[in-house]
């Protein structure tokens, strides 16, 4: 397991552990992420991806280990859109901007509407928007406080290919602007394509931290097969 240190470390964990009853969801997970990096967290169902992100976001407290967060906000985008469906796009943004305590909530709303290209839908109730557009608003809420780190939990789940493409264009632009983006996904191809680095979790263990090429190399029996097959072979070799 190796971390690629490209630039300034903005978030770092050491030995994170979390237990839910009898189940050990995280078993001493350590990693770090750098400014402007796109870090993909992948793994089978129940691997601990959402638990890890919710601890990074400060929603859950770990039972053990530590998290070193950057000064200021960490943007958090839950898997399911955390939006009020009966409020309009602008009202949702304005509400959370005010709750964030932003000095100029209206300016922040306008900025997010521009960034999400949803200015024309500003007065539409969120419940009337497509899943993709709702997810863009969901991400925009996570960006309101201009966080140094943005956490995305399964951001493309339920989106059609076109919506996914537009979503990733948006996320890449954020990373290009210096925002560290940590996202979890079930879509291995998406992780390979957009994740500059991959963190593989299985049953609460961090099994791998490196690039997609490193992961391919770590599963030599996969041969020249595609990345998803290499990933499955990697997990199988390690008993998962």
């Amino acid at each position: 397991m190796s971390a690629q240190a490209n630039g300034e470390v903005v978030i770092e964990t050491r030995g994170l552990a979390k237990r839910f009853g009898e189940r050990q969801a995280l078993k001493g997970v350590s990693f770090e992420a750098h400014r402007g990096e796109l870090l993909a967290i992948i793994g089978p169902n129940g691997a601990g991806k959402t638990t890890l992100l919710s601890i990074l976001a400060g929603i859950r407290e770990p039972d053990g280990g530590s998290v070193s967060r950057p000064p200021g906000e960490i943007g958090w985008v839950p898997q399911q859109a955390a939006l009020y469906r009966r409020l309009t796009v602008a009202e949702n943004l304005r509400l959370f901007a005010r709750l964030e305590g932003l000095s100029n909530a209206d300016a922040a709303v306008e900025e997010m509407l521009e960034q999400t290209a949803l200015g024309e839908r500003r007065d539409d109730q969120v419940g009337t928007l497509s899943g993709g557009n709702q997810q863009r608003i969901n991400i925009a809420l996570g960006l309101l406080s201009r966080p140094a780190v943005l956490l995305l939990d399964e951001p493309s789940a339920g989106l059609d290919p076109r919506q996914r493409e537009r979503l990733w264009e948006f996320v890449l632009a954020l990373a290009g602007g210096g925002t560290t983006v940590i996202f979890s996904t079930h879509n291995i191809a998406e992780a390979e394509r957009y994740g500059q680095r991959l963190l593989v979790l299985a049953d609460g263990d961090a099994l791998f931290d490196g690039t997609s090429g490193d992961l391919h190399a770590a599963a030599p029996e996969a041969g020249g097969r595609d990345f998803e097959q290499a990933f499955v072979a990697f997990l199988r070799d390690r008993g998962h």
Binding site: I59, W76, P78, A82, L83, L141
Partner: peptide, 13 residues
Amino acid sequence: EENAYPRLVRGLV
């Protein structure tokens, strides 16, 4: 139901 609770109690309210 709106999934807003975790977002709200994450330091906002």
